[in-house]
Simulated scan of single mutants.
Amino acid sequence: MTISALVQRIEIDGQPATAAGLLWPALANPGHFTAMQVRGGKVRGMDLHLARLDAATREMFGQPLEGEWVRGLVRHILRDDIEDASVRVHVHAPDGKPSVMITVRPPTVLAETMEGRAQSLMSVPYQRPFAHIKHLGGFGQAHYGELARRAGYDGALLTAPDGEISEGAVTNIGFFDGASLVWPEAPHLSGITMQLVEAGLPAAGVPTRHARATLADLPSYSAAFVTNAWGVCPVRRIDDVTYAVDEKLMTTVSGVYEEVPLEAF
């Protein structure tokens, strides 16, 4: 997976970001966001992104967020010259009224093969507060992610004190038990890619369910994968438990995701 940190554009409420305008996002944590991969000026699951932003804005700031306004802001920042990009829509309320900051970076590119995408995860004793909100200020998950990378892993797997698994630091995780797909039922963020995949898997012949999943259960699964805005990746190792890449399963899961129509803003 290749990620560039270069920010191409930043706009706040449709205007180029200024130093004064960036003070609140830089110094205040209250806020939330959604992240999307834009291809050809289009995105998968736009309605889910807008619903996420509206629900979190209502919960955090007591006000709705108009979806068509957000669509227009994304169209405006992409203009006619950016077709592929990593886009983040941040919502703050510096004066009590929702304000939308959008950042545009180059797109994230996954390896072409599933073997090349395979991830290793280190379990860590941490669960996100208000896990159902994609909120800002996630020091714990970010720091544990960095500790995992220093230890030679690709990312962190968040767990409760009793070993119950909730989600990855920046991903959702699914486990295959040979017959059905298990999503951890512990508090977690329902990622957009996860929602799209979960909705399409039964029709593709893979039943899904939400159930308690623990570190002790890991050897009982035959395969695992993670989902994120950038797509679907198999998991090859969690701590000392290893998994072979199940090519058939991953072809099905990634196929379900890729068949979701891209929608213009």
Rank of each mutant, 00 (worst) to 15 (best):
T108V: 14
Y126Q: 10
Q127V: 15
L78A: 01
L147M: 12
A85S: 00
G138Y: 03
D84R: 03
H92Y: 15
D95Q: 11
R117C: 04
I82Q: 01
A148L: 03
H143I: 14
H92L: 08
V89A: 03
E115S: 15
H92Q: 10
H132Q: 13
F130H: 14
A142F: 11
P106K: 00
D95I: 06
H90E: 01
R149Q: 10
T108H: 02
A93C: 09
E115M: 14
M122S: 11
S120V: 09
I133L: 14
P94L: 03
G138L: 13
V89P: 02
D84Q: 05
R150G: 12
R149H: 02
R88M: 11
I77W: 13
H143P: 02
S123I: 05
R117V: 09
G137D: 05
H143F: 14
G140H: 14
R79C: 11
H92D: 06
I77M: 14
E83F: 02
R117S: 07
H90T: 06
R150S: 10
H143L: 15
R75G: 11
R128Y: 01
H90S: 09
H76M: 01
R75Y: 03
G72C: 08
H132D: 06
V100E: 01
Y144F: 14
P129D: 10
A85P: 04
H132W: 13
H143R: 15
H92F: 15
A142L: 14
E115F: 11
S99N: 07
D81P: 04
P94Q: 03
G96D: 10
D95T: 15
V104K: 01
H132A: 10
A85L: 04
Y144A: 05
A93I: 10
V109F: 00
H143K: 10
F139N: 13
L147Q: 10
K97E: 12
P106W: 03
I102P: 07
T103N: 06
Y144L: 08
G72H: 00
R79N: 15
T103E: 07
V109M: 05
H135L: 06
V109S: 02
G140K: 12
V124Y: 02
E115R: 12
M114N: 10
H76N: 14
T113D: 00
S123T: 11
M122F: 12
M122K: 15
I102R: 02
A131C: 09
M101E: 07
Y144G: 05
S86L: 08
V104S: 04
D84F: 05
T103A: 04
S86G: 02
G145H: 08
A118Q: 08
H143A: 12
V109T: 03
M122L: 15
I77T: 13
A111H: 12
A131L: 03
G137H: 11
R88K: 06
Q127W: 12
L78M: 06
S99F: 07
A148R: 07
S86A: 11
L110R: 10
V87L: 09
T108I: 15
V104A: 01
I102F: 01
D80N: 13
Q141A: 15
G116I: 09
